[in-house]
């Protein structure tokens, strides 16, 4: 009986897979072959990269980084009060439930869509992008933070409650210091993430390098597009390296752990 169920479910899965592949056109061989030729043509068109537009691209990239920086910062500042209000270990469901629903609603809307909304509100350009990223960061960081905050040892909260500490004191002196490592590492993660997503926001007119990319695609200047993509890639890699450096500086635990492992292996 059990093995029959197993065969039936495997068969069902296989059928679903084949049907989906057919629906998306994966069995349309002539079309796939044409696609390979088209890719070859595109490769010829995008190379070599156009060096003339480097200054223009760097200016746009700077705008992108500024958008991500401001967006992450504002979102972070807002996420601290919002995440604490969502804390079920400190506040009653009458407070936490509406806050969590609001944060959930913010997260449901993708960053790109927030960008559209803010382009309508404040017009084309990086301001719309920065505001879109602020809201998006608020939604995500708050969730990451209240989950980390709720993992704080209940013994700590119990002891401080016995001292008669207020809720604000509880958050300020126990929950935030105890979660500091998570706060910093998630913040850096969010910044890296926002750099990537702010490159795309320009597609809907919210400033930055994405705006430039779209204009090159529309004008069929694929060699200029290549330059922009390569530069974006380099910047993203550089920012990742910088943030991992910051991580090492501000998260001493990481450093200590590696130190211990090294000394342990020296002993053995």
């Amino acid at each position: 009986m059990r093995s029959l169920e197993k065969y039936a479910s495997t068969l069902l899965l296989a059928l679903a897979l084949l049907y989906s592949a057919y629906q998306v056109g994966l069995f349309n061989l002539p079309r796939l072959i044409r696609g390979v030729y088209n890719l070859g043509d595109l490769l010829v068109e995008v190379l070599p990269p156009n060096p003339e537009i480097i200054p223009e691209a760097l200016a746009a990239l700077t705008e992108t980084i500024q958008m991500a920086f401001i967006g992450t910062f504002i979102g972070f500042l807002l996420s601290i009060p919002f995440s604490t209000l969502g804390l079920r270990t400190v506040f009653s469901p009458a407070v936490t439930t509406p806050v969590r629903v609001l944060l959930g609603a913010i997260r449901t809307i993708p960053a790109l869509f927030w960008a559209v909304i803010f382009v309508i509100a404040v017009g084309l350009g990086p301001l719309a992008g920065a505001l879109a990223l602020s809201v998006y960061t608020l939604g995500y960081l708050s969730k990451l933070y209240y989950e980390a905050f709720e993992a704080v040892d209940v013994d700590i909260l119990d002891t401080l409650r016995c001292t008669g500490a207020s809720r604000i004191a509880l958050i300020r002196f126990a929950i935030i210091p105890e979660s500091m490592n998570t706060i910093i590492s998630q913040l850096l993660f969010m910044f890296e993430y926002n750099i990537r997503s702010s490159a795309v926001l320009g597609f809907v007119g919210a400033g930055g390098v994405g705006f430039l990319m779209v204009s090159y695609i529309e004008r069929l200047q694929y060699q200029s597009l290549t330059t922009v993509i390569i530069l974006t890639l380099l910047i993203v890699v550089a920012i990742d390296a910088v943030s991992s450096l910051v991580r090492k500086l501000y998260l001493p635990q990481v450093r200590r752990a590696t130190g211990k492992i090294r000394s342990a292996s020296q002993v053995s």
Partner: peptide
């Protein structure tokens, strides 16, 4: 506010110093 509680897992804030943890006792 005059009940001192020492839980089984001690309940210290790991990122604070010994002195700061003691000072938490005066938060009330």
């Amino acid at each position: 506010k005059k009940i001192g509680y020492v839980p089984q897992q001690i309940g210290l804030v790991k990122n604070l110093t010994a002195l700061q943890n003691v000072l938490l006792g005066s938060l009330g």
